[in-house]
Design a protein around this nucleic acid. Structure first.
Lengths: 251, 251
DNA sequence: CGAGTAGTTGACGATTGTCAAGATGGGTGG
DNA sequence: CCACCCATCTTGACAATCGTCAACTACTCG
């Protein structure tokens, strides 16, 4: 993994950005993209364990992950934490904080990362004069809301096996869209964080990785994952394997 | 329960609406509220089991619940459904559909209800010329996103007891804000739907209601709920009762 | 009044969490 | 450069919560 990131490579230039259509400018006209570029701040690279922001920090900007991975989490009453998500390049962080101008969760850097900073006040002003940007932002927020349903289903109905398979399938899909391999990637998060995110004990996650490997679905070496049988993985994720004819709580 | 709702009573008039500051117009100036009123459609009352929309229906409007309760849910691969939420007066439905102009979930009426319909295209146009409306809408969407974290914690970490207590506490709080009793209310959803929503089996929900009643925390008669000890309920919801010193997955 | 749906209760088992011990590997300092 | 150390991960044994199955009750609605 190349840890050296030149200033040049993170220079903000949406129109040249490798994220392309994944990011906010999607669907904007070139002149509008230029206006957007003007308000975007360049940030120094962030290092593992840095915090982008913490719960209750006052909110002023959204962030788009350019490279690396960022974890968002919520401190729990019992002192532990609840992982809310892992954010890959092209994904936006901070949308939850618009409502009362205070971050409701913390964001921690899992591996050397770079982000674009979008001062929200200016973004709003811009959206006020660029209808397609306003629309784009509504869509962005909406997408986040629509995604929630899948996670609720995962946590509410899926068993451990289905959860981990879904997780791997989701990562695979997201890597692919970003031009990385869909079948060979590194996990930037720990087993503990995966378990926390999926509502499982670390031990369960560990056992499942072992089992998946034994079954020939994946090859696991520490953080390195190779998907050997994507169809099977998808099938497990959907729960359409293993003859479970559950009709539970169907009503 | 009064099932007769006169046309008069559902006439749209934001400025007189009992929802007051709960709804969209919150924070708008009177002239802006008037503009908003002009685009709002009046809908006939909806009856139990009506669908407001179904998954994949094309999206054109947001809906605000005026009276009653509406359930949103996602069909699951196995033919069952995943309940996403129960929407009380003042709560907005359809935000998930903005992203690709198609509803991602279905919305079903649990008891005679009335809704305001907000044609989204017109709402966007209005937001384009009323900055405070644009801001208000961003906040609305953001709030929805921020709420998600609580639900993930509930499903990921809480046990059955904590889940049901959290659910009752949440309902209580929402009823209170709407001017209803915080300690005496009717559930418009079935045990099955509660269990589905909370990731529990119906039987578990049923047993917990019985247990809570035996412990003197609530009085339950069918759909009628009385909260007898709110502090205790809150404590159970937070998991700060029953000496569980869990530090699980804290990292 | 009858039938069907929703809710309750009990018995049982399985999935998954907990506890404990051990293995592995990366990072740091001598 | 090696060795040690600590965090992370793995594996096993056990227990408990909660889901499943089944029977029974009680409403509700036609």
């Amino acid at each position: 993994m190349n840890r050296v990131i030149s200033i040049e490579s993170i220079k903000v230039a949406c129109k040249n950005c490798s994220l392309g259509s994944l990011c906010l400018p999607m669907g904007l006209t070139p002149p509008d993209v230029e206006k957007l570029e003007k308000i975007i701040k360049r940030n120094r690279p962030l290092h593992r364990n840095d915090h982008l922001f913490r719960e209750n920090d006052s909110f002023s900007s959204l962030f788009v992950v350019k490279t690396g991975t960022i974890k968002t989490y919520l401190p729990r009453e019992d002192g532990g934490e609840q992982v809310l998500g892992f954010h890959l390049p092209g994904e936006i962080i901070g949308l939850d904080a618009i409502q009362d101008e205070r971050h409701t969760c913390s964001a921690k850097v899992l591996e050397t990362s770079a982000v674009c900073e979008l001062p929200f006040g200016q973004l709003e002003e811009l959206a006020q004069v660029i209808p397609s940007l306003q629309h784009q932002m509504f869509k962005l927020l909406s997408k986040e809301i629509a995604e929630e349903g899948k996670m609720l289903t995962l946590l509410g109905k899926k068993n451990a096996e289905e959860r981990l398979a879904s997780f791997l399938a989701s990562l695979s899909c997201r890597f692919k869209r970003r031009g990385f391999s869909a079948t060979d990637f590194y996990l930037s998060m720990s087993r503990n964080e995966i378990g926390n995110y999926l509502g499982l004990a670390v031990e369960t996650v560990s056992r499942l990785f072992t089992r998946f490997q034994e079954e020939g679905v994946v090859r696991v070496d520490r953080k390195h994952i190779e998907l050997l049988d994507q169809d099977r993985l998808e099938a497990v994720a959907k729960g359409s394997l293993c003859a479970r004819t559950s009709e539970s709580n169907s009503a």
